[in-house]
Simulated scan of single mutants.
Amino acid sequence: MRILVTGATGNIGRGLVHQLVEAGQEVRAMTRRPQAARLPAAVDVRYGDFERPDTWSGVLDGVERVYLFPHIYDVTTPGGHFVDQAVRAGARRFVVHSAAAAGFTGEEPADQSLTYLKEHLAFERQAHREVEQWVEATGAEWTHLRPGLLAVNALDWAESIRTERVVREPYPTSGYPWVHEADIAEVAVAALLTDEHVGNAYTLTGPAKVTHAEQVQAIAAAIDDAIRFEELTPQQARTHWVGNGYPADYVDWMLESRVDSIDDSGSVPPTNTFQQITGRAPRSFAQWARDHRADFR
């Protein structure tokens, strides 16, 4: 059985490829930079680009199951959508990397004053749900994985931690149940290789809310060195992020996402999905920090 992993060199895709290889599967990896992929020798690494339909046939040939990375899936050809072409090439099962927002009701966040965040979540919900529905419409088997906020977002702090041993953020008590990318990959393996998860949509999070201040403490413990948390006012954070190249509208919802989760985990409460599927608790943020200590040293 040949399994295609799209987004194969990303944080989740790379781990998924390794887990599938360890499980003895025949893996094909789709990437825009095959020469820099650094994947196991057993993997069939091929050039493919969602924005270049002329590259799809060479990637999809002989593929039976697909891990579908969340990209711009509105690209079509006279022959149809990437998903349609995959089905015509022989794909019979898709595991869709979606997002928690795809399962939202449209009422999130609870605080209706958070208009930028609400608009962002509505866009996320529509974009990811459209991909899910496209896959469902093919008649192929499907499982939707809907991760919440990813622990790898903390890599945004890597440079300032490496060079200054400092993190600059507003709202130190805000935070979410950050999900470890290895947990997502592990559930994806189960959905690709077994029949137990066909037709299900799973929201995946970490085990509990971890505040930004607690994240910094966990990273400090992982690298065995002190890291200073410098609390910014909202205006200071806006100036800091815009100065680092973030668009102003992106900064608007970034600030509101912090406000959303000050008192609790906001729009993304913890789930026990990973434990239900695997029988084990989700990996903690402290574990994620230990797994990524090299990024911060």
Rank of each mutant, 00 (worst) to 15 (best):
P234G: 01
A154V: 13
E230L: 12
A213Q: 14
D225W: 06
R165Q: 13
T163R: 11
A201Q: 15
P234Q: 01
T163S: 12
S160G: 13
H197Y: 12
Y202Q: 02
V166M: 11
L149E: 10
A221F: 03
E181T: 10
F229E: 05
A213I: 11
I227V: 11
A191V: 04
E141M: 04
E169D: 06
A158T: 01
A201I: 04
S257G: 05
E159T: 14
W157E: 02
Q217S: 14
Y171K: 04
A248S: 14
L145C: 04
V198T: 11
Y250V: 10
W241N: 08
E230Y: 09
A185W: 05
A222P: 00
L155I: 08
T173Y: 05
Q217F: 05
L255E: 07
A226N: 04
G139R: 05
L255I: 09
G139T: 11
P247M: 03
E256Q: 05
G243A: 14
A226I: 03
V216E: 01
W157Q: 02
R168V: 01
Q126E: 08
T143K: 04
V166S: 12
I223A: 06
H128D: 07
T239L: 09
S261R: 12
I223R: 06
E164C: 09
E231K: 01
T138D: 06
Q235T: 06
W241C: 04
E214D: 13
A237S: 11
